[in-house]
Amino acid sequence: MPARLLLVEDDPAIARTVAYTLERDGLAVTHSLLLGDARTQLGGGTPFDLLVLDVGLPDGNGLDLLRELRQARHTTPVLMLSAHGEEIDRVLGLELGADDYLAKPFSPRELAARVKALLRRSGAGTAPADRPARPATGPFHDDANGQRMHLHGQPLLLTRREYRLLSCLLAGAGRIHTREALLAAAWGDDSESTDRTVDTHVKTLRAKLRAADPAREYISTHRGMGYCLDF
Rank of each mutant, 00 (worst) to 15 (best):
R4W: 03
V8W: 08
V8Y: 11
E9H: 10
D10L: 02
D10T: 00
D11H: 13
D11V: 12
A13W: 05
A13H: 11
T17A: 15
T21S: 06
L22T: 05
L27V: 00
A28C: 09
A28D: 13
A28W: 08
S32N: 07
D37G: 09
T40D: 12
Q41G: 01
G45T: 14
P47A: 11
D49G: 12
L50I: 05
L51I: 09
V52L: 14
L53R: 04
L53Q: 08
D54R: 02
D54K: 05
V55I: 14
G56R: 13
L57Y: 02
D59E: 06
D59R: 11
D59Q: 09
D59T: 03
G62D: 04
L65E: 07
E68V: 08
E68I: 06
R70D: 06
R73D: 15
H74E: 15
T75V: 11
P77A: 01
P77V: 02
L79T: 02
S82G: 05
H84L: 14
H84S: 14
E86W: 04
E87S: 10
E87D: 11
I88A: 15
L94S: 07
L94H: 02
G97L: 06
D99H: 12
D100F: 00
Y101W: 13
L102T: 01
S107L: 08
P108A: 00
P108D: 05
P108K: 07
R109Y: 12
A112F: 01
R114K: 10
V115T: 10
A124I: 08
G125F: 08
T126Q: 09
A129S: 14
D130Q: 15
D130K: 14
P132W: 00
A133S: 15
A133F: 04
D142A: 11
D143K: 07
A144K: 07
A144Q: 09
N145I: 07
G146H: 10
G146P: 03
R148N: 05
H150D: 11
L151N: 04
H152Y: 12
Q154L: 12
L156P: 03
L156T: 03
L157D: 14
L158I: 00
L158Q: 03
R160L: 11
R161T: 13
Y163P: 05
R164A: 14
L165C: 03
L166N: 04
L169C: 06
L169E: 06
L169A: 09
A171N: 14
G174F: 04
R175M: 10
I176R: 09
T178Y: 07
T178G: 14
R179C: 05
E180C: 13
D189A: 13
D189E: 15
E192I: 08
S193H: 10
T194G: 02
T194R: 14
R196L: 13
T200Y: 11
H201Q: 12
H201C: 05
V202H: 03
T204D: 06
L205E: 00
A207C: 01
K208G: 06
L209M: 04
L209W: 05
A211H: 11
R216D: 08
R216T: 14
E217V: 09
Y218D: 00
T221S: 15
H222V: 12
H222C: 08
R223V: 10
Y227K: 02
L229G: 01
F231A: 12
F231K: 05
